[in-house]
Amino acid sequence: MADANSDTSPTPRRSNRRVIAWCMTGVVGMFAFGFALVPLYDVFCEITGINGKTGGRYEASSTGQVDADRTVTVQFLASNGPGMSWEFRPVTRSIKVHPGEPVTVNFFAQNPGDTPMVGQAVPSLSPSEGTPYFHKTECFCFNQQPLEAGESTEMPLVFIVDPELPEYITKLTLSYTLYDQSQHIEVSGPVGAGASTNKNG
């Protein structure tokens, strides 16, 4: 009946082929757009800092002006992801800092099991409005942390709270979730080797 169609139909104003081509362009374009949402989402979150993903290593350009008049409380949380057996906790639970000064705190981690394991910590900051103003110059979350059976370690975090931090934010809470990466390590090498472009670790 396809032929019957072409014999009898009124002269098509546009050929079907052209409509199909346009539609398929739309389909392919939207499929690509679905995947483009992944990096777009990360870029959007990085610019606005709205999902609490803190940025990567901060290169202190001007380590000047410490705002000694202002005090900000920074709290630390540590928790294990699903299936993670390590003991993981902040050595300092809460600290008062002046914006602009570099501060070092440590996190304690121990592998209580009898096999070597690799962990990866993923940070999240609350309130998320503070995210763009929380800079880490050194963080254990930038790398994976291997621990032998029974081994323990103290992992450093060096951060600066930006003096530009909005006035209404007086307290920041940084939460780390530690994930077991032992199976992934042989397969995929560095963390985030998955399709996500997010390397903010």
Binding site: C45, K53, G81, H184, V191, A193, N198
Partner: peptide
């Protein structure tokens, strides 16, 4: 083994909802 929606691999479950 990708991590589009898996936080431990650098992905984000919230992205799925978007």
């Amino acid at each position: 083994g990708t991590s589009f929606f898996d936080a431990s691999g650098g992905g984000d479950p919230v992205l799925f909802q978007h």
